[in-house]
Design a protein around this nucleic acid. Structure first.
Lengths: 233, 233, 233, 233
DNA sequence: GATGAATGAGTGTTCATTCAT
DNA sequence: TATGAATGAACACTCATTCAT
């Protein structure tokens, strides 16, 4: 009974999200009205407000759902990596590269003007548990794991914006990852070594039309010797 | 009398343009209403439609006026250059660099969502006359100068978009200029040499608040040996 | 089993009534949605319509429930009075004074805009049985007791509205009661005497926050000699 | 030209006000939509917002227009009174009595729920100039006439509310007027005398349907000896 | 050309009510 | 009876555009 209901709920919400996402793809998020979203989702106008508080929310929710798709794509890789430090490295690299190369994502946040409101990264819960795994395993040394997690978020945002605004180039990614690893308590040399480990390609699921995301974005972008000049400002 | 009239016309139009430009700077172009534009310009609502057919037009016109300001800034340099090939080189380089570094411009087309509708380049008339000067002077060999001009426009648009989307880096500018020169019939070596010629700085007039536009964007960005790798896609 | 069921029904209905009443107290009855009422009552939206036909009904029902509380407060007094005429007198006086002085009641009907739709008086059944008691006991002489009852209702409404609109003052209460008694067949002098009998205070139960309702509103308001001028219009 | 325009403006605004006023009379101000107001006024929806900022404003404006009608009714009387003290007395008495007896006014502020937002009194400008007249003529002694004016406003509001809530009776009017006069520097005996002066009736113009407002509300309500007991709280 | 009042379609949002489960 | 998702008409408010003067 409850299951039926909640399945219905999920279906409706998914319809709305899909509708909004498709419309954003076709036009910008301005010029999209809620009536259009609901029409395309084949529900009544009022139904929208059973799921979202206002017009803004659905775009944030779509961004979240794209993030979740990426998380699903990444999951098989993450599972295979037992070393927390390596897992953190690969996860960071994956999201960094998605943020910079995934055309669907870039189009979406540009068309919705969400550039400064939303960053692409793993969920806060997952990030925290990654850090705590590392602490438990003795690889990380960190006083306040939640605060460290939020610091990392800030760094990610900063680096993504810098690259987007062409104030830094893609070398900044590996540099940032290395910095984060050191912040987590890894020795410098280990950090460096980790950021150079290449990784097997990640297959994006079929949902994405744009084939971009070359070699899964997990191979190191650049050699270590180039790090020094990666930031222009 | 007629002059008075047409001057008044110009004043009103200039007011409207300035008003629109300022408002775009303060907010995005969405959320700007025509009533606000006219109010700030201290004319009546209806007056707007004596100068522009609809809301869209004024933003295009503002873009044009920014372009004209740049043309004015560039003009003293262009006048001093007698060689048509050199003039073309410098003009292209100037606009390319403005498109990529001038913050006012970038903000404006981003806020107005005109990124794909408008490109920054010299006026079509001037471009055409530059080409024809070159032909007359025997430096260019071109069959259909108008069509060539439009080809160049397409290349410029393509390069600017590529760099903006980070599909190419700034080296692409010199590479594109060299290609255009060769297309105009210059020998390869000459083309290469021209693109390496540095140029005196261009003072942007006081209108721009953002001081960016380092050394007027006319110095060659990179050495020729790097050209081969400038395009990533 | 059936009892269980009907008790549950009662609980749900009571929750809804309490919720509506509290919300009216906090805001006006406009701006209160059924979803808010049900939310606060911790039942589902649809449940509302198992108990009330539409939005209006619940406010009428709340008014009724307040009336019932008053009836409960009055009951111990009524029970002690054996003489039907005296019981009628006291009952009328009680409701009149509640209508005019009970702040909870006044606030409620004002906030719900029920001023002209609802009057505060005893239940029709009780009123009728009071009249018939009087007839059986030989104190009242009335042809059609039901019609008389409805006449009294009309008078009560009229007097309460008159006082509320300041077209009459509170002396009108005793005057009206006297008139009703005479209408029921009591001699003039007896009617006068009855309206002058004071009565013990009535304790309002704890539900009411406003302590107003001075001396239970049953003491005669004014001396008989003042009656003549009590109506201004 | 300008005259034509501004006459058109006035006509439209008057239509809207009349429409709103009529609708309030027919129903409460809730349940009146702007579409209804504009429909009845035979203008387009958007036109409303050329005259009022939001839905609330028009009801305030209607209240103002009723006030102005009263001012017009009173004006012929005011003009005949040369003594500033007497003019203040009569003006205060007029508005007090209108606030309490004018059925149109009372209905309007009750239906629009403006009871606590709006008070019926002369315009602030007129009040101020009345005070200053009195000062120039040597009848009033007041340090800060604007502040005094605002004090009087506060007193008027207080008295009107007190009477409306039946916390004071109509004797409070004369008592308040007398207090105000003393506050303006008149000797006690003069103040008393002024409040006892009766006045000729004021004809309300035909606009009002309700004939209430007996004898213009300017006759003193009560004898001075009753003042002491006029306030109940 | 300049004016600004008028227009009316369109927007985001609310909410009483229905109904399948 | 209880549920809560779905509904869609209604609302206040915006604004690009028109047009008589």
């Amino acid at each position: 009974m409850d299951d039926r209901e909640s399945e219905r709920r999920n279906n409706t919400k998914r319809s709305l999200l899909a509708s909004a996402r498709a419309l954003v793809e076709e036009r910008g998020s301005d010029r999209i009205s809620i009536q259009e979203i609901t029409q395309r989702a084949e529900v009544a106008t009022g139904t929208y407000y059973n799921y979202f508080d206002n017009k803004h929310q659905i775009f944030l929710a779509v961004a979240d759902s794209i993030r979740e798709e990426m998380a699903d794509d990444l999951e098989p890789i993450r599972i295979k990596i037992k070393d927390p430090a390596m897992r953190v490295t690969m996860t960071l690299r994956y999201y960094f590269n998605q943020a910079i190369t995934n055309q669907d994502w870039k189009d979406f946040i540009s068309r919705t003007r969400l550039e400064n409101e939303v960053i692409l990264s793993q969920s806060e819960e997952q990030a925290l548990s990654d850090i705590e795994d590392g602490i438990k395993g003795g690889r990380f040394r960190v006083d306040d794991s939640e605060f460290t997690r939020s610091l990392i978020t800030g760094m990610v945002r900063h680096v993504v914006c810098s690259i987007r605004d062409q104030k830094a180039d893609r070398k900044a990614i590996d540099y940032a990852i290395r910095s984060i690893l050191q912040m987590l308590g890894l020795p410098e040399l280990v950090s460096k070594a980790l950021t150079q480990t290449p990784l097997p390609p990640i297959a994006a699921s079929k949902r994405n039309k744009h084939e971009k995301t070359q070699n899964s974005g997990l191979a190191p972008v650049t050699s270590i010797s180039e790090y020094s000049s990666s930031f222009k400002t």
